[in-house]
Amino acid sequence: MTLPLLVVTAVAAEAEAVRAGADPDNVVVEPVGVGPAAAAAGTARLLATGRYRAVVSAGIAGGFPGRAPVGSIVLGARSIAADLGAETPDGFLPVDELGFGTSVLSCDPALLKALTAELPEAIVGDVVTLSTVTGTKRTADRLAESYPQAVAEAMEGYGVAVAAAGLPFAELRAISNPVGPRDRAAWRLREAFAALSTASGQLWTACG
């Protein structure tokens, strides 16, 4: 029996967008909650059944200006917990430098390669995971400087990657807004959800 692909999203609206494009016979889509902790716990619960061949964290995200424009699709090469660490007088220290593990988890190379082949217009780069969405230019600039390969920020990818625990993992995001000052009028949720649905149509082709 061929095991299905599990796609986890933060909220139901994202799950509906993925289901609108994904192969219903081979792709299971579940919302697991907002933030890395809820994402990790919800994903781990689903994967504990042993019923899935791979897991994808999917949804909408903010794109770093000049790297991932609104409406684009992003594939994560790495998922990075960008606020996991410690503050110091000299700035932020990631957990890696504290000697307490790693804040960087790579997506499965074979799965990423297959997704890139099926989604040739997708932008490949790092996706930073944050518990607090960026709302100022100062923070956006700091993140862009600290993570020069980052193309997007979201809130769940790193948590899902931790829960994958060796199972092939990837992160797929549709950009709904630029990273920076919160301006709801500039968000393009409808367009991002449409792009997410279109991209989701290629998930099983890449995974299968």
Score class of each variant (00 low, 15 high):
residue 181 P to W: 09
residue 167 L to H: 08
residue 180 G to I: 08
residue 168 P to Y: 03
residue 171 E to P: 08
residue 161 A to T: 07
residue 189 L to Q: 09
residue 173 R to T: 03
residue 177 N to W: 01
residue 185 A to M: 11
residue 162 V to T: 12
residue 177 N to F: 02
residue 158 Y to I: 10
residue 166 G to A: 06
residue 174 A to W: 00
residue 188 R to V: 05
residue 164 A to N: 05
residue 157 G to M: 12
residue 180 G to S: 05
residue 166 G to Q: 05
residue 182 R to P: 08
residue 161 A to R: 08
residue 183 D to G: 04
residue 159 G to H: 05
residue 164 A to M: 06
residue 184 R to H: 11
residue 170 A to T: 08
residue 190 R to V: 15
residue 188 R to A: 07
residue 167 L to R: 14
residue 173 R to L: 02
residue 159 G to L: 04
residue 153 E to F: 12
residue 154 A to N: 14
residue 175 I to K: 05
residue 157 G to C: 14
residue 188 R to G: 00
residue 165 A to T: 06
residue 166 G to R: 07
residue 188 R to L: 00
residue 153 E to I: 14
residue 181 P to G: 11
residue 187 W to K: 08
residue 185 A to G: 15
residue 179 V to L: 00
residue 163 A to I: 06
residue 186 A to L: 11
residue 162 V to D: 00
residue 161 A to V: 10
residue 170 A to Y: 02
residue 182 R to Q: 14
residue 163 A to R: 02
residue 163 A to H: 03
residue 172 L to K: 01
residue 156 E to K: 06
residue 176 S to N: 04
residue 179 V to S: 01
residue 161 A to N: 11
residue 164 A to W: 03
residue 170 A to W: 00
residue 187 W to C: 03
residue 174 A to D: 00
residue 169 F to L: 06
residue 182 R to D: 12
residue 187 W to D: 12
residue 157 G to T: 15
residue 153 E to M: 11
residue 184 R to A: 10
residue 154 A to V: 08
residue 158 Y to P: 10
residue 165 A to K: 12
residue 169 F to I: 13
residue 185 A to K: 14
residue 175 I to Q: 02
residue 183 D to S: 09
residue 155 M to K: 07
residue 184 R to F: 12
residue 182 R to K: 15
residue 189 L to C: 08
residue 168 P to M: 06
residue 163 A to F: 01
residue 161 A to Y: 10
residue 167 L to M: 14
residue 183 D to A: 11
residue 168 P to S: 03
residue 162 V to H: 03
residue 182 R to A: 15
residue 174 A to L: 03
residue 167 L to I: 13
residue 189 L to E: 07
residue 185 A to V: 09
residue 172 L to Q: 03
residue 178 P to V: 07
residue 183 D to H: 08
residue 177 N to V: 11
residue 190 R to P: 07
residue 181 P to N: 07
residue 181 P to I: 14
residue 189 L to N: 04
residue 158 Y to H: 15
residue 177 N to Q: 07
residue 190 R to D: 15
residue 185 A to Q: 13
residue 172 L to Y: 01
residue 161 A to D: 10
residue 182 R to L: 15
residue 158 Y to V: 11
residue 153 E to L: 10
